[in-house]
Structures are given as C-alpha cells and as structure tokens.
Design a protein around this nucleic acid. Structure first.
Length: 560
DNA sequence: CCCGCCACTTAGGAGGTGTATT
DNA sequence: AATACACCTCCTAAGTGGCGGG
C-alpha cells in the first residue's frame, strides 16, 4: 500500500502542479534570494533621557543601555513584576554591563527606568498620531524592504518568503511559567547566519560576512541561525502560499484521508490491545484511545527546567487525571486537568469504556502524583507502532483526521439548503467551532467582549423598534416601497441576531488554528460550492492564497 | 535503545489596518 | 472627520517526528 500511496501522490502531484517531483529528499534545483533582512542598529537615548540608580543619575554604556531599554519598554506588562522574569533579566543585563556598572548596579529594585519608559510611551503615541503622509511614507519604506528581501526564486517560480526578517534582540517572553522568561535574546549578526542557496550568493551587510554558505537542496530553508535561549535553530522559510508548502500541505491531508480508510481496523486493534498481557501494549492502547477520541497531542518528553511544565498524551502524569466510578450520571469518567502546548489548560470530563478505566486504575497503582501515567511508553514507540499499521501514520495524523472528518460531518448535519447566507455561515462557523473545541484551541476572551456584546444587543433592540415602526407604516400605506423597507429591515435584524449568537458562542474559542492547520480545505471548498456560498465568505485573501491548490482542484462532490 | 540534533508544523497574542458607524 | 471595533498580519514560541551515531 505504501508504494501505491506514494505513486498516487506523485501522479496526482504531477497533474496538479504540472511538474515532476524530484528524487528522494530533493526539494529544489535552483534557489536564489537576497538573504535575510537585519533589524536596524540600536539608537542611543537622547541626552535628556536618563537612567537612575538608587536615586542618582547614571550614564550607561551603549550595550547596557540597550538592554535597559528592553526592560523599560515592558514596564506596563505583568511580566516585569514576576520574580523569575526579574531575576533572569537582571542576571543577563549585568553580563552586558561594564566593570564599573556591574559594581555599582547590584539591585534591580533600585533601578529607575521611569524616564526611559516615558520616552518609549511618547514614541508609541507619536507614531499613532502620525499624519496620513507620514504613515504613507512608512508604508512605502516597508514595502521597499518586502520588495528587496521578501521574495526568492525557487525553480523558476518567484515565491514569497514567510519570515525574511532576522528576529530583533529583546527579552525572551516564554508562555506560561517559563523558567527562562526575562533572559536576553541576543542580537543576531551576519556572522551567526548560515545561508542556503544555489546560484548567486546574497551580499552580507557592509563589513560583515556569513557564518557559512551552503547549497543543501534536501531542505527548504533559505537561512538559519542558532538562538541563545534554548540553543535551537531558527529558519527562514517560504510563505504558506508557496508551491513547496502547498504540496506538503496537500500530502498531509492525503495521509489523513488514507487513515480514514483503515481507521476501523486500527480501532479494532487497539481495543484488542487493551487486554494484552504486555503492560507496554496496554499502555499504548490506552494512549491511542485518548489520542483518537480526544485528539490529544503525542506528548514528547521535554528537558526539565528548560521549558514550562506542559504535557501531551504520552507525557501525562498521574496528577493530571482523576478517576470517577460515577460522575454526573455517567460511569467510568476520567477527569483531565493539565497544561498542554503553550500552557493552555486542558480540562475535560470524559466517560470512557470500562476496559480503559480499569487499565488506568492499574497504571496508577503504587505511583506518586508526579509519576508518569504511561511509564512503559513514549512517542517514539507509539509512532513506530503506528507506522507499521499504515505508512506515514503518526500520532498527529489522528488530530488532522478527526478534525477534518468532524468538520465534514458537522457541515452535513448543520447546513440547510434553504437558509440564507448569514445562516449558512453561522452553520459553517459552528462546524468549525466543534473542531476547535475538540482540538482545545482557546483564546483569551477579547478585552472589550462584554462591552461590544452589549453594544450589539443595543443595536438589535433599536432595529426591532425600527421594524415595528416600519410595519405600522406598511399597514397604513400598503405601498410597494414600504414593503421593501420592512423586508430589508427584517433581513438586517436577522443578520445581527446571527452575528450576536456567533460572537457569544465564540468568546473563548479560536477558530483560526484549525482552519489553517487541521481542516482539509477541500471540504470547505466543496461545501461552499454545494450550498452556494462564495468561498470569499469563509476564506480571507491569505487563506485563499494558501489553499489555492484546493480551490483549483475541488469539485462539489469532493468527499474527505 | 537512547540521545542530541535538525527540520518542519502548529500556536496564541500583539498590534496594525481597514471599515462601519456616528 | 472621528471613533470604535472586527479582522488580519506578523511574530516567534512551542510543539512533532525523523535521523544518525554511539
């Protein structure tokens, strides 16, 4: 089946993109670009802005001053009140100081960044108050940078680069309780950057040279550097609308569709494995049950102390679940409470089958809260097993598959042909929302949520009044024009009410992530054709660019 | 089998932009 | 023209998973 899948992918790709694929691992033949764009040099503080230590004016060296500004800029943020943030910051800041500065400045609490902070706020304010002409000039300058650095030539296609700018220096802001928050993220020099290309080599900034120039066409990145916080590599890569990324995206959904055809067998298999004599096999089966049913992430191990304490399926600990024989009228309920990716809380009470429940009890026996739930399992073993069941199958494919199949089912269930466009879009959003909830894609409620909800309600009330009035007028006049006015008014009212419902239901849900990363766009395109809703209503410009391949190839009868 | 390294996808928030409303 | 707010783009952190070497 593997050969068959590969062949069909290659075949379909060649039809779609009208170009043959390269041999094993080769991603391109020709690659030309201008290198990354570097952030501007540090501009020293004006003479009338001072830093004070212990009440006394202190003129800082350039390097120390730049890092002081990073802190001053964040002073309104809660970060700067956190102990870990402040300690990390102060330690790293001191490294940038001269001998004299270091021997003087020994306590962050005695540092007064007030004037620097005020200067920063004034700058932000001034930028907001720029004239139209000034704003236009800034826009044009930015466009010039995009024109020069934002594109590359890859195999005769001019492609947009996704992130062509080197990340500027600043203070590291991790998510959640990150042990490294506040550390200094250093300025990247051309000497730190590896260039990947074929053809003409980009010219480094004057007086500088690249760390290395290589010609590796088995990878897709144009430039890379190593960041100093985690020691990980950062890449400059193509935009999502590029041919390279589009093909990869398409392949991802084809693998998920392949899973659809064998998911029943795989489910039967792990149900059998729940009774295995091997503890490892049972743990694998329970983990798979969670991954499939709840769309949990795989849960790779993480280095302790390097990142926030978050987990996925395989890294769940005993303290993250509570077992209830009975709860809210259901039997065998597992209560999940843990921090997942980006320290987003996963909280869910799930009735499970008895075999899973009994296994969980067994796995938790004689363990401490901090012990691994699945002590005989890791993502590597899980993925090895999965790839033996189906080529290309890994834990994350289940998320893609379950997200896409859920969207398709929900759209079928919720959409009525006779609805108007606003109602159809509400159904679409609700289907999308079902997926976002499954995948636990949350957002902080917008700061002005309650206010804007109240405003909308006031508008609805006003419209209702207006409608009543228009109806009275119609009765009296029975004029063609009045009838039209009533009809228009009713439509507007319905539209607003639908909008209010949609917004309320979406308070803490983020739809974008699933739309962009988990939902096969062909499902949405086919739906839009079927129910005659223009695709522009569900995808904005950049989404249409990213999913151009799907918009091109999808017929109304497409089935995931 | 384990570890470290690498390449790539997935993620939420900040802040800018454009549009509707007053 | 001013204001409010919804939507979008950018940013970069935080995941997944493959590979090679000991």
């Amino acid at each position: 089946t593997y050969v068959c899948l590969t062949r069909s992918l290659v075949l379909l790709a060649s039809i779609t993109w009208e170009e043959k694929k390269y041999e094993d691992g080769v991603k391109w033949r020709f690659l030309e670009h201008n290198g990354p764009y570097f952030p501007p040099d540090y501009q020293p503080l004006p003479d009338n802005v001072h830093f004070y230590y212990d009440g006394k004016k202190v003129k800082l060296s350039l390097a120390a001053e730049e890092v002081a500004l990073f802190f001053a800029q964040m002073l309104d943020h809660e970060y700067t009140t956190k102990k870990v943030f402040r300690e990390n910051y102060f330690k790293d800041w001191r490294k940038e100081m001269t001998h004299e500065e270091r021997s003087l400045i020994k306590n962050l609490d005695k540092c007064d960044f007030g004037e620097i902070h005020a200067m920063h706020k004034a700058k932000v304010e001034a930028r907001k108050n720029m004239t139209k002409e000034e704003k236009l000039a800034v826009k044009e300058a930015n466009q010039k940078i995009v024109d020069e650095y934002g594109f590359c030539l890859l195999d005769h296609h001019k492609e947009r680069i996704g992130n062509f700018k080197i990340e500027p220096p600043g203070l590291f802001r991790g998510r959640g309780e990150h042990p490294k928050q506040g550390m200094l993220k250093k300025r990247i020099q051309p000497e730190d950057v590896i260039i990947n290309c074929k053809a003409s080599i980009p010219v480094p900034p004057a007086g500088h040279h690249w760390k290395e120039v290589r010609h590796d066409n088995t990878v897709t990145w144009l430039a890379s550097w190593t960041e100093n916080i985690q020691g990980s590599i950062k890449y400059i890569m193509l935009n999502a609308n590029s041919k390279l990324k589009g093909e990869k995206d398409w392949e991802k959904y084809e693998v998920a569709r392949k899973l659809k055809s064998c998911v029943d067998d795989i489910r039967n298999q792990y149900h059998q494995d729940l009774k295995s004599k091997q503890m490892g096999t049972r743990q694998r089966a329970v983990a798979l049950y969670f991954i499939d049913k709840l769309a949990l992430r795989a849960g790779n191990e993480k280095e302790e102390g390097e990142t926030a304490d978050t987990v996925g399926c395989c890294s769940l600990r005993v303290e993250h679940i509570t077992l209830h024989e009975q709860l809210d009228g259901s039997e065998c309920v597992v209560e999940f409470d843990f921090l997942g990716k980006d320290s987003i809380r996963y909280y869910n009470k799930v009735p499970v089958i008895r075999k899973v429940f009994k296994n969980l009890k067994l796995f938790m026996e004689n363990k401490q809260p901090g012990d691994d739930l699945f002590d005989r399992l890791n993502t590597n073993m899980l993925n090895k097993h999965l790839s033996s069941l189906m080529p290309g199958l890994t834990a994350k494919v289940f998320r893609t598959y379950n997200a896409s199949i859920t969207l398709q089912q929900q759209l079928k269930e919720l959409t009525n042909k006779s609805d108007n466009v606003a109602e159809k879009l509400l159904s679409y959003n609700r289907a999308n929302r079902a997926v976002a909830i499954l995948c636990n894609h949350q957002r902080a409620p917008p700061k002005t949520f309650d206010q804007s909800m109240a405003n909308l309600q006031a508008k609805i009330d006003a419209r209702k009044e207006h409608l009543a009035l228009a109806k009275t007028e119609l009765k009296q006049a029975k004029k063609e024009a009045k009838a039209k006015a009533v009809k228009r008014c009713e439509e507007q009212l319905l539209k607003m009410e639908v909008q209010a419902t949609d917004r309320e239901e979406n308070k803490q849900i983020a739809l974008g992530t699933s739309k962009l990363n988990y939902l096969d766009p062909r499902i949405s395109v086919a739906w839009s054709k079927n129910v005659e809703v223009p695709v522009e209503k569900i995808y904005n410009k950049s989404q249409r660019d990213k999913f151009a391949w799907a918009i091109d190839m999808t017929e109304a009868d497409f089935e995931f």
